[in-house]
Amino acid sequence: MRTSDCDVVIVGVGGQGVILISEIIGKAALSAGLSVRGVETHGMAQRGGSVINHIRIGCRYSAMISLGGADVLLAMEPAEALRYATYLSPDGIALVNTTAVLPVTVTTGQASYPAIEEILAPLWEASSRVYPMDATGLAAEAGSLQATNVVMLGALARHIPIGEEALLEALFQTVPARFLEINRKAFELGKIEVE
């Protein structure tokens, strides 16, 4: 028996605004009268480290998603998509920002960063659908690189059982009013990208 309507794993790098995405989904789910659970990475792992948030919509159990249980993997960064790909269910889909954030192990020359094709190939095998997208570029187009997470949220919108209106309302409640237009555009660009 399924114990949650929709399980989303959101991954990225500390500082990319992963927590904001969870927060908006949570608020939107609450206003839609859905039971929602999430869990976040705080503390040490935020210092440029790899971060993972779980969010479960229509769930009354724990906030943790099982390996192999996620309906959607939302990745703000390609290497992190692959790092956490085992969370995806075989029927799950992956939304992947293709712009890399180089870890300090790469900038200092201790490790190298793989080509995007090398990252996407195993992802294609692990999931039913992969949507690679230049969310960072789309955010720039919307007016701010900071809105990359909102582009990803827009891309996620049609894959979760929450209405777009509720998501936008929660988004506008959360971000400062002066960035409203940029965020609206970023959300729209993300949405169109996966249509």
Binding site: G14, R83, S89, I119
Partner: peptide, 21 residues
Amino acid sequence: GAPTMSPEVLSILPPRPPALC
């Protein structure tokens, strides 16, 4: 079993430890 990724596939990933800013 839960889906797994072969260690060879994951070995292409650079480690991303938390670091000084």
